[in-house]
Design a protein around this nucleic acid. Sequence first.
RNA 1: GCCCCUGUAGUUCAAUGGACAGAACUGCGGACUUCUAAGCCGUCAAUGCAAGUUCGAUUCUUGCCAGGGGCACCA
Length: 550
Amino acid sequence: MEQQIRKAVSEALKTLNAGEVPFSVERPTDLVHGDYMTNAALVAAKVIGKNPHDVAEQIADSLTKSLGGSVGRIEVAGPGFVNIALSIEAIALAVREAGAQGAEWGKGSGDVGQRVVIEYTDPNPFKEMHIGHLMSNVVGESLARLIGNEGATVIRANYQGDVGPHVAKAIWGLQKAGITEPVTAKEIGEAYAEGSRAYEESPEAKAEIDVLNQAIYMGNDKNVMEFWRKGRDISLAAFERLYKILGTHFDYYFFESETAESGTRIVKDGLEKGIFEESEGAVIYPGEKKGLHTLVFITSRGTPTYEAKDIGLAFLKEERIQSDRSIIVTAAEQIGHFKIVFAALEDIAPTIAQKTTHVPHGFLRLSTGKMSSRAGNVITAEGLIREVVRKASEKNEDPLIAEQVALGAIKYMILRQAPGSDIIFDEEKSLSLEGDSGPYLQYALVRARSVLAAAEKGRTPVGGASAAPYVLERIILHFPEVAARAARELSPNLLASYLTELAGEWNSFYAQERIIGGDYEAHKLMLARAFINTMKNGLTVLGIPTPERM
RNA sequence: GCCCCUGUAGUUCAAUGGACAGAACUGCGGACUUCUAAGCCGUCAAUGCAAGUUCGAUUCUUGCCAGGGGCACCA
């Protein structure tokens, strides 16, 4: 519908000689203004130098003719908005489609044929996954689904740091604890914390860990490597269990142990071409020239830094996955890092740089203070999930439902706000199971399903359609546009807030209207079905579970 | 010091330069012998400060104030 209106407005502008101007077609803030509105007249009036109100009148006339029966009323309002109210028939048609299309309802086709690779989560083996990784995962998974919903082929990638100081610290910690055969990820995580502490407090420990780190990079010491392999496998297996719970999966895994070499090679090659420079024995990228700052890519000891490895990763992805777009989801603290990596990449391989986007997610800040492994107040992903599941269990005996509700609460908390901004995490308040929360949406869906189930047992519903469309119907019809916009703007929160509005409207409808045995029963049941499809598909696209009952 | 991000109701968050700045939590006040009360209805309450750009600014620009992040051999 939005597309049709957009096209009709374009046509109207052409006949006014306004040419190509950027205009919006969107939902008015208040439904009394109609179902769509456009500011085209205000924009065009400036270009052609006419009174906005007159231009609006002309556009309105033109739209009345071109849109025909799908429109009920077109009005000019305010300084020159054109408000469009759909006809009852058009609304009924959209709702019927929503009810009939099932899982297909809301799917777009804007990205058909596109291959999009999206990298997210990026946990480090030998450390436990904490809530920062959880955020990356939840945001990344929802983006993957949103983009897939627009028809693109999505390839999920996960990049993990299996070499580096943190690994040496963990292995050192395990050895010190006399553990010869690591068994659990928790054990390894604790050993890492112990190793980190020792690294900063004891010079001897620091020296030992540095040696160990080199040994891991070289891969010569059989015993160390055997230990490394075992520990890595245990960590990775623990991650997989979490992915399963989270409803996510990956098509490709990349490891720092494989990007180091290619990264080093590419940077050295760039050094010869004059892209990088030598300084104090290290290889640096002189970011100042582009208004950024200078960073070391290869250390004076010859080892690649994170930056060089990211260059290596970009090439490795290119080698293994053909893509039209590449998205990387990481914490916002890496914004500066990626600006420099992209600047360097722009010099080395502009096509890769241009198709790559960094999507930062905010920090999860504890209301009680900063989270750090040293202070011991790190909240692990698993710990958080377990805690919320426990809370959800108070109302749900079925452990599966409790888990679905808990994940809904956690994921919604993360997705409800614009990615990039921090979440102030208060265990009591943030994970509310009421009001503006995941369970609120799930609960609305469950109640609608229950109505439908009850109706199917009964007799044939009373027919007839209501005289005027319900507000609920007028919200439902916008679902495909909202999903498309959320995908385009990489902003799951747009869909999350739409679904919250939708759930609220359903709850009002449910409280006010008698569905089974009420007036217009058949129509209302159709509406319930349309609501269910919209909510179910919407939640699924966000990666939020849709329980059968609560 | 330099660069980036953020300042919206008591609190946590919304709002492609658009109409009366929306929710939720909290507070206060209600309804219901009915399809699941994790629900519904009502109500109090906000754009950090000062200029500028224009038909119109929470949104763009500048300055100030406050908070967060980043800034050469960690990731």
